[in-house]
Amino acid sequence: MDVISNAWMILASVIVATPPQMAVADAVPACTAPGTLPAGMADWATPEAIKAAATADDLEMANLLPGQAVKVRFAQTPAVTYPLRPAKPGGSVSYGGLLRLTVAAKGSYRVALDAPAWIDLVGESNAAVDSFAHGHGPACTTVRKMVDFALEPGVYTLEISANASPDGEVMVMRIP
Rank of each mutant, 00 (worst) to 15 (best):
A52E: 10
L98P: 01
K71Q: 12
T77H: 01
Y82Q: 08
T55N: 05
A69Q: 09
P83I: 07
G96V: 01
P47C: 03
I50S: 00
A56D: 15
A56V: 15
M61P: 01
F74M: 14
G107V: 07
V70F: 02
I50C: 02
V72M: 07
G90L: 02
P66A: 10
L65M: 13
R85A: 12
Y95F: 15
G91A: 09
P83T: 12
L101V: 11
T55K: 11
A52D: 14
R73T: 10
G96W: 01
G91D: 15
L65N: 14
A105N: 15
L84R: 02
V70T: 09
K106Q: 15
A54P: 09
L59D: 13
A53L: 05
G90C: 07
V80C: 13
P78M: 10
K51M: 03
S92K: 13
P47Q: 06
L101E: 06
K51H: 03
P89T: 08
S92H: 04
A62C: 12
G97L: 08
L65E: 15
T55H: 11
V80Y: 02
L64T: 09
A75W: 05
E48W: 02
R85C: 06
T55P: 13
L99H: 00
A52T: 06
L64I: 08
P47E: 08
N63T: 13
A75Y: 00
L59C: 13
G90F: 00
M61Q: 13
E48C: 06
A53R: 03
A52H: 10
A62R: 06
P86V: 08
L98H: 00
S92G: 15
A79P: 03
G90V: 03
P86K: 06
V103G: 06
D58G: 07
P47F: 00
M61F: 07
A69S: 14
A62L: 12
T81H: 11
T55G: 14
P78G: 13
A54I: 04
V103P: 05
G67F: 03
A87H: 07
R73Y: 00
V72I: 02
S94R: 12
P66Y: 07
Y95I: 04
Q76D: 13
V72L: 04
P86M: 11
A56R: 14
P66V: 10
V72H: 04
V80L: 14
I50K: 00
P83R: 13
Y82T: 11
L101F: 06
